[in-house]
Design a protein around this nucleic acid. Structure first.
Lengths: 226, 226
DNA sequence: GTAATTTCGTGTATAGATTACACAAACCCA
DNA sequence: TGGGTTTGTGTAATCTATACACGAAATTAC
């Protein structure tokens, strides 16, 4: 009789143009790894899907709804949990600034955002999981337009540009970047503008999912390689 | 108390220049889906890793050793197995012609290779898993040189070219393809030749893993986009 | 209120990469 | 020895990616 448990873990990313990319972590209340920072997650219930389990845990543990969620990898080494055999299906998710900031304010000391460049020690093999998630996110934004899910629905183009710079960790030429992204035709320029500091006001843009799916169905290829 | 079972399934690909790309299937001995074709796989033992479980099952059920094995995706919908809740971690693997042909000969009617264009009805959600694996393999060969794992260690260049044509399902220009592949420097031309039919003998080539890792460590990027 | 500062917005020229394309060489077979 | 088959090779044209700088529109500082 098999006695393996199945859990889910979530690497949730948030973004702020000032602070960069962050990951949501919680502190563990119980042994093993009591008081360590860890990824939100937990055992899957007998009648719920894996994705439902992730969403439930995120709601319970951090009060968060993700706008994007995708399976990352399944970690199953027998020794990864010192007590039981636990196979964990890891997911990664993205939240918009709204959710990112709300959870950042709840001064509960058991939920917090950590910049991906300044991660604390993590429980279990969670460091490994986060690293793999970061790699995947970096790779993914290069060929699928998921970066938008980390921004407000309407955003100035410079936010997107900065996001790519932060994630890819290098300079991105403003003109070439905009030329490329706009050439795909799934970003709409709105008649509105905003101004968040000194400088010329920025026009707002918005991702058009419908147009994106149309293009995708025509077999379009989105090398966003910058 | 959780009562979810953990299994593994394997989508093993084999290749032959004459027959194209095939998948290894077995017939189920028991209900549910008795006598249906299905992916090799089974429950993970309490003390074995996921990858070890895949390799064990492939050995037991088909007598095969894969030369390449990678996790594909984890399937966990509650209704995917009509009896129990089973979460299945799917892998995909590649075998060389040697293994492909040996298993093709064992006339056991419970193990067989099926061309990916002529698949039979499959048990459970295995059709879905195979489709995802094919997509992944197609994508993967475009940016990592794993195609070699489906060929003999020494192979004529035309074999590689044909493999790409079959997998990508379109023509590939011989000169441009060779130019591109050779430019990466991880393929060596050997002083030997072979001749498998009429026509000019073909020089043999061989993948140099060491050189590949060296290049990879220097941050090299292998867009094999053809 | 004028000058300095900040951020947004835009186009062209060059280099690099991809694609299209055809014929000779080396073997087998009849 | 001539016809059939497969391998092997280079160049020109097109497309894509990159490099690069200055004016416009607002705020801030004096």
């Amino acid at each position: 009789m098999q006695s393996i448990k199945v859990s889910v873990d979530a690497v949730v990313f948030g973004y702020d143009p000032e602070e960069g990319v962050s990951v949501l972590l919680i502190t563990r209340k119980y042994e093993p790894f009591q008081k360590f920072w860890a990824l939100p997650g937990g055992l899957v219930k007998d009648e719920e899907s894996l994705e439902a389990a992730v969403k439930r845990e995120l709601k319970e543990e951090a009060g968060i709804d993700v706008t994007y969620l995708e399976q990352l990898y399944t970690f199953g080494k027998p020794e990864r949990d010192p007590r039981n055999r636990v196979v964990s299906v890891a997911y990664y998710g993205l939240v918009r600034p709204k959710d990112y900031h709300i959870s950042a304010q709840t001064d509960a000391d058991d939920v917090a955002w950590f910049n991906i460049k300044k991660l604390p020690r993590l429980a279990f093999d969670h460091k490994n999981i986060v690293e793999i998630a970061i790699k995947r996110l970096r790779g993914k934004i290069a060929y699928e337009p998921i970066g938008f899910e980390l921004l407000d629905k309407k955003f100035p183009f410079s936010d997107l540009e900065k996001l790519y710079q932060v994630l890819l960790d290098r300079d991105v030429d403003r003109r070439n970047f905009k030329k490329k992204i706009m050439s795909y035709g799934f970003l709409e320029e709105l008649p509105e503008s905003i101004q968040r500091s000194a400088g010329r006001p920025a026009k707002l843009f918005q991702f058009n999912k419908k147009k994106y799916f149309e293009l995708q169905e025509r077999g379009y290829n989105f090398d966003l390689f910058i």
